[in-house]
Amino acid sequence: MQPILVFIETSQCEIKKPSLETLSEARRIADNIKAEVVSLVVGDNVSPFAKEISSCSPDKVLLVESPDFKEVITTTYVRALLEALNKINPLVLLLSATPFGKDLAGLLSAELKTSAIQDCISISYEQGSFIAKKPVYAGKAIITVKVIKTPAIITLRPKVFKLSVAEPKNVIIEKISVNLGADDRRIKQKEVVKSAQKKVELTEADIIVSGGRGMKQPENFRILEELATLLNAAVGASRAAVDSGWRPHSDQVGQTGKTVCPTLYIACGISGAIQHLAGMSSSKCIVAINKDPDAPIFKVANYGLVGDLFEVVPSFLQELKKTT
């Protein structure tokens, strides 16, 4: 059986957690079909990651380690991935469906004259083909797709696949070298700008506290931020809050924002328009706080609380502090 190749995404000296979820899923499939799991790590100074990855039980780690890959840029990373694909000729390439993973998947599919399936929520290997389920229309429907060509290129949605970690063990590490051409340097990274507070990434957060037009003013988001800090949550927003300029665009949840599936989504002053629901209704548990008992958000809320958020949220915060 041909192996399964998993791309491990790293940033700023850390492995991105969705990559480890992807690796865990690769292990489960590989065990079913008796295939090997090969993971690929690319970057400058990434050897130390091999050990961390070993806790997700790959059979082998391919390392592309060179200052050429210090900046995480698609053009150069595509080269590294092509090198790995050529070397091991896998059944499937799995990446996590982060923005970078999705861009790589698209670029590679063109190289291999195939198409990637992005943002999958389940995958299986049946009768010689990969079959994946993927949300469409921002989650208003789900399609089951069969891949006709090999290798399949599939990206897995963060927070959907279970992370399984075992004791780190020794894995085979193999270094490969990649030569870059002038064409691979047509994109140059000039600067990385991080927002001042270290934020939990919306699509990777276990808990999201989201605010809508009902927040009335940008300053009022302070109470949501306080709640988020207590719960180690990310702060999201409806489009109304974003379009009012209260929150950055990157915080928008919904069909034209982020699709999220946290364990807990707390919607404050959000009515629950269809475009908003599309982006968050696969959350495991939804709490809605809204003063209008007829707001559509209550139709999807596991726990709805009718009331003025400016009273309810602070009281919720106090109650949580009491008990945690």
Partner: peptide
């Protein structure tokens, strides 16, 4: 290189509860 086998609705959520 891809074939759509099926389209379905997402799992329905339990009815909202106040």
């Amino acid at each position: 290189s891809l074939e759509i086998l099926k389209m379905e609705y997402p799992p329905s959520r339990p009815a909202g509860r106040i």
